[in-house]
């Protein structure tokens, strides 16, 4: 198998996947629409008798929901019906993983860009249809920060997608993960809720409080690579169209 052959197969599969998983764009629109509705009350608000209420608007909720969408969609890519469709034509596991990696990046790009733009949709809707006194905006004025921010959104979504992909692959590898992983996630959430577990908050801060773009880039892409490596190893012996 030459490198060129692999590249050709990956390219073909990449475009095929867009046709195959077009339904993902449907759920993207629905997910973001729901998140926008949730955002109408403001991502945060403060109030007092003297100033009334102040709502702070941003598309944070849309972003978080898009993370979830990416996670679920990537997980679904690994499930049997999706995989069977994928493996109809020319493939091997390596080309399949590589094309999935790229496909998820493309999905993240679309999801991230629309999540970013949905912030404007939210704000324009609030401006036009809500009887609120608008105090002002806090727009980012530096183009470098805007570019870095958009890339970061895409990277975060890609990271969640590859996490979902890894979880799905592990479940395909050993069914026990289907019970294990949700238990771990829910357990962690409860832990955070009950004791504000330091370790988990530190993980969150590690990714989302990083103020250096370079470090964000390194941290997320390293996570993506790790997830795909684990996925590739765990599904290397997986048989298809059982």
């Amino acid at each position: 198998m030459s490198f060129a052959e692999l590249g050709k197969a990956v390219r073909k599969q990449f475009f095929y996947k867009f046709k195959l998983f077009f339904g993902l764009f449907y759920s993207l629109v629905i997910t973001q629409a729901i998140a926008i509705v949730f955002s109408f009350n403001g991502t945060g608000s403060i109030s007092s008798g003297q100033i009334g209420q102040i709502h702070f608007y941003s598309a944070d909720i849309v972003l978080v929901f898009t993370f979830g969408w990416a996670f679920i969609s990537a997980l679904q890519l690994t499930t049997k019906p999706f995989r069977d469709n994928e493996y109809l034509f020319v493939f091997n596991r390596l080309s399949s993983h590589l094309s999935n990696l790229l496909f998820l990046l493309a999905l993240s790009f679309i999801g991230g860009l629309s999540a970013y733009l949905s912030g404007y949709l939210l704000k324009v809707a609030v401006y036009m249809f809500f009887d609120f006194q608008l105090i002002g905006t806090n727009d980012i004025t530096s183009p470098a920060v805007v570019v870095a921010g958009i890339i970061t959104i895409v990277l975060y979504i890609w990271m969640f997608a590859s996490l979902g992909y890894m979880v799905g692959s592990l479940v395909q590898f050993q069914k026990v993960f289907a019970i294990l992983i949700p238990s771990i996630i829910i357990g962690c959430l409860i832990l955070v809720a009950l004791s504000e577990s330091e370790a988990i908050i530190r993980i969150g801060k590690f990714y989302f409080f990083e103020s250096s773009f370079l470090l964000v880039f390194i941290k997320t892409t390293a996570t993506v690579c790790l997830c795909f490596l684990i996925s590739a190893v765990s599904t290397n012996h997986l048989e298809v169209r059982k």
Partner: peptide
């Protein structure tokens, strides 16, 4: 009610 627009 007042609104302030923030970046993500």
């Amino acid at each position: 009610e007042h609104a302030i627009f923030k970046p993500e």
